[in-house]
Write a protein that binds this DNA or RNA. Sequence first.
DNA 1: GGAAAGGATCGCACATTATCGCACCCGAAT
DNA 2: ATTCGGGTGCGATAATGTGCGATCCTTTCC
Lengths: 271, 271
Amino acid sequence: MLASQRRSRILEEIRRTGAVRVSALVERLGVSDMTIRRDLEVLAQEGELRKVHGGAVLPGGRSTEEPGFAAKSNRQNAEKQAIAAEALRMVEPGMAVGMSGGTTTWTFARLLRDVPDITVVTNSVQVADLFSREPRSDQTVVLTGGIRTPSEALVGPFAVSAIRSVNLDIMFMGVHGMDLRNGFTTPNLVEAETDRAFVEASRRFVVLADHTKYGVLGISTIAPLDAADVLITDSGLVEEHRASLRERVGELVLVEAAGGEQSDEPGSSRA
Amino acid sequence: MLASQRRSRILEEIRRTGAVRVSALVERLGVSDMTIRRDLEVLAQEGELRKVHGGAVLPGGRSTEEPGFAAKSNRQNAEKQAIAAEALRMVEPGMAVGMSGGTTTWTFARLLRDVPDITVVTNSVQVADLFSREPRSDQTVVLTGGIRTPSEALVGPFAVSAIRSVNLDIMFMGVHGMDLRNGFTTPNLVEAETDRAFVEASRRFVVLADHTKYGVLGISTIAPLDAADVLITDSGLVEEHRASLRERVGELVLVEAAGGEQSDEPGSSRA
DNA sequence: GGAAAGGATCGCACATTATCGCACCCGAAT
DNA sequence: ATTCGGGTGCGATAATGTGCGATCCTTTCC
């Protein structure tokens, strides 16, 4: 059995019963306890479950934990993980990193916690929450001020003013839609304003967007496509769209969504 | 059964009935009384419940509202409730209200949610959380930016700059200590800075502090006693201290803590 | 084509830590 | 004063994580 299959089984089990114990999984899946523990570690890192003594439970506990709840955040989760992993390669110790809100950046923020000596500026309460859960003395997390939107982002003049006063080495932004004519868009007018401020405040502007965002149109434009220095998306994007984007954005990075929920092809040679 | 499952069951039970007994849980969950006690201890530490003789009851208000910082918030809870109720009388619809962090202001914020048409400016993530749980279109809640302290307050230049740019009708502040010589103090240097900015930004400065704060000295002074237009405290304060304070602060308001220890009645004392 | 190098995954042994129940004594309520 | 619940100390048991070696698959080189 493949590791990703095994992990799917674990998720299936925990979603059905609400909790799993290591010893039960050892018996059921026929692997050692260490393997199970490592699986749980990985799944916990992805936010799919929460490790507890003796096993794991669903993460549903804290309301501020996961943005938008499971329905939304699990969509394209494998893609988001892969995108986040790729984005992580662009961050180096000592950097000043900006992050907007959204589930993709939230996934990315989970990985970012392990990077030493960085300064994070964000207008997302959830992202700030992630870092403040286990504070590290070598990391500084700045939450911009402002008024909360339903998606828990801070917007408005306070946010804009705070963002304008910083200089970021790199800015990571999740968007709701990307389109040739309208660029990167969001359904929230005031969020677009803060997002624009973020773009202006950063030396390097990186957009994180899975392939389903292509062609989606939010009411407000954050920036044209060519404003992005890098766009990281996944290989689910069809060739035609890849070409379009490649012409416009600074650099287009495609990542392979590793070990999705179901899409495993054992022994297939690389294309 | 996993320990965390067991604790979930306990919470479920207590939220359904309002109270649990140790003996009942022993039977229902099939573990020893000591295990139950230890569970209750953990949950009480998290602020999910309050231990009483024979079992546990729900803490002050809705337990789901209480964030993780609640271990300390139950101390002097009755006093805080009474102080908060008194402070509420000073707020009128249409006002711009400032609030610092701390458990006393948090208690106050819960009452403030019912006041129509107000603007709240706070550097406390928890206070902002309270309002964003059920957003009202006639209320605006501004979170100042900044870096999080362990007590979940936002501090630093971003916070100060945001606070300086607003004008508040009234400012409510919880303090860590009050002392004749050193005035209102806090153990956190940078928090004092934002607190001072709050004082300067407001027309009317109200301090909320239960009687145990008297004589306590934090490392950093926020303001001298006479900077307070109003000081609301409880009648646990001895006469000698009352007199001292009355000389210095603009107005000293003493409230009676209802019911001594118990305070888990939703429809609380005054209107 | 095949062998060697590289990388990832998994299992085992070990030291460490957390959990639980029991016995015992203390404190609170009636 | 008596009874019931509460807390502390201890030992037994289970769970955890780290380091290491074995195995499998992929890649690379000849």
